[in-house]
Design a protein around this nucleic acid. Sequence first.
RNA 1: GUGGCCAUGGUGUAGUGGUAACACAGAGGUUUGUGGUACCUUUAUCACGGGUUCAAUCCCCGUUGGCCACCCCA
Length: 440
Amino acid sequence: MIHKKTALKKTASKPSGYTTLRGMKDMFGQEGELFQYIYEAGKKIASAYGFGYIETPVLEQAQLFIRSIGKGTEVVDKEMYVFEDKDGSRVCLRPEMTASIARAYINNGMQSMPQPVKLWYFASMFRHDRPQAGRYRQFHQFSCETLGEHNPVVDAELIVVAYNMLRDLGINSMVKINSIGTLQDRENYLVELVGYLKSKRSYLSEDSKKRITKNPLRVLDSKLEQDIAVVEEAPQIIEWLSGDSKKFFMSVLEYLDEAGVPYVLTPTLVRGLDYYTDTVFELYPESEEEGSQSALVGGGRYNGLVEQLGGQATPAAGFSMGIERVMHVLKKSMSTEQQDQALKKGGVFFAQLGEQARKRSLYLLEELRRAGLLVQHNLAKSSLKAQLELANKCGSTHTLILGQKEVQDGTILIRNMESGIQEVVDQKKITNAVRKLLGE
RNA sequence: GUGGCCAUGGUGUAGUGGUAACACAGAGGUUUGUGGUACCUUUAUCACGGGUUCAAUCCCCGUUGGCCACCCCA
């Protein structure tokens, strides 16, 4: 007896040992439902605004991202999953998808499609970062990109889509927006900025001192108090925009005003990817206190990217929403009760009793499915008790009960889960009956 | 990549230098056809590796992982 028990224990504990890789996670149950819910919301709003779906490979040439995002950026230098393929080429798991979009635009001759080309996607990205709240090594972005149109209304529309999607999900957000001008504007400004930062060098943090040579724009959004003091007096990039860029930016803001999207002009907002030009923006949850990784959405214009990757000069803009971050906010704002409620499917449960009934169930369930009616069920269960418990957990309003007797009579029971009243219905009328119960 | 906190069943938590308690969840059952409100049974090599000790889940070191902040980004 004792011997048997220990033997069982050993086999039971054996299969462990395989775990998910660091920063990766399984999503199911409540999380799985929430994930799909956000996916549906994205699909709906993207379609409504005329974006077409695009799917691109997870694996791309490493060079694609190095060229577009830029050497010297954290994403490229430290966070990319790069490795050698069997043929010796350098490949990488995409850390973001804008470069893939630009590549796809060129490869597929999208410049000869009606412009602008508007695309959306909802996909996995990979960055070898240290995991943290709302940050994983494999994460998901919902994004919209508009290529082939240099018009401020495009920028505004993208922000409107991101803003409204969050609102649809029940998140009030705040838009931070800035313009970093053309590449030329930025170069001119950088000369000025670097000169200023060098003059204040001794007041800056160690990190920021390094940034002066590496990536001076980043000093602007440092969160350290000593840096903030210096940055407050720093020349602002807005002042250095060319006439066209300034005008363009003003138009974007006007459109946002018209659309009723509140925004905060943020002169210190710069972005960490090299391809951005002109408009840059980020969306934060309104309720959130200051914190760096609370940005739910990031995006902007990238007029030079397509050309840089070998295509015709093509203006473009887009945004990306971090799904895990949105989920993080949603989970915090929802009570556990609400979350449990979200798992309840409601509707109608189908229970069967006895082998004959089980066999007949497969037929009836398919008949219902073909009529477009979904009912919950668990054919593997035998006892009616167990199935009613399930029906209860699902929050079903009614349960269909098919037993030996009903199979013989060609009938089925409909039990009202609240009142306990049961009525006998002809199996032939089951579709109409269920449709009525589901209120369709 | 840097720093802080942490690591007990499926989940959330107790607890002790002599191998673990509670709640919930899961599975099965309490008359072979009735749930949401009963009862019973069952579900843990106390993250991994090493050290101290007669003895470690509990003490020490390391590893791995988690959470949080920084860097950076979504």
